[in-house]
Design a protein around this nucleic acid. Structure first.
Lengths: 130, 130
DNA sequence: CGGCATCCTATCGGATACTG
DNA sequence: CAGTATCCGATAGGATGCCG
């Protein structure tokens, strides 16, 4: 056990402990498609198909599954309009927005820093090829 | 393609596009064990075994793999002391610290908000059980 | 259009055994 | 202690087909 168990420890990050409920939540937020869905919804609500195009490369099945999980966790709202053809909008809840904004910041940071990462990879690989 | 391609768009999040290099980077940072390793190393450098205990539930294999990936991406440094028994320390680079601090903040947020998520799950499940 | 059910395979990831 | 190698089961996740 780490520092996690010390009550009132400002550094406690109990998510590191196995079997901790918060770990499951973190896994949903940081899941491959969850990250991208949340980041997209920061901008505005999206329809299912829109979201699928916006988050390139996600299959219908995985998008559905991701949306369900995030909806159940209270991060987003599903609004199905009773029209034909069907129209379903997804938007962030207040809780979801808090998560999404952090995830979005991380995504932006990653984009800015990707060149540095690519340089690091080259250096790493070359150091072992020679 | 989304807003990503519009040059100079302050809202561009090109990571959403498939085949974008930054997406791979984001996946490393937000990987299940990557998140927890980074969050742990914010506090201080760790030895391999220490890290394994701190990040409960991670197998030796996955920890090794995660550390290799993050090292290659330039997020952390591996310092092997030439002693017997072997001793290897892992610490954050400047680049890694930038990522780790955001990930750490997200982990802390998740812990604070986990009760809300659990409540949302109960509400969601009950709404469909009845 | 926005699902859901089924099938099927690639990858993930744990357990175990062995090495310097 | 900090790995590496191998095996192998679990599951993530794509493809397809059907429905309201």
């Amino acid at each position: 056990m780490g520092v996690s168990e010390q009550l009132g420890d400002a550094n406690a990050v109990s998510v590191r402990a196995p079997m901790c409920p918060s770990r499951g939540v973190l896994e949903h937020v940081t899941s491959q498609w969850g990250v991208l869905v949340l980041a997209a919804l920061v901008e505005r609500p999206y329809r299912f198909g829109e979201l699928r195009r916006e988050v390139g490369g996600v299959s219908e099945k995985m998008l559905t599954q991701t949306l369900r999980t995030l909806e159940r966790d209270g991060f987003l709202l599903r609004h199905a309009h009773p029209v034909i053809p069907p129209r379903v909008d997804y938007s962030l809840t207040d809780l979801g927005r808090e998560a999404a904004e952090q995830v979005w910041a991380l995504a932006r940071w990653t984009e800015r820093r990707t060149p540095d990462v690519q340089a690091a990879r080259l250096a790493y690989d070359e150091a072992r090829t020679s």
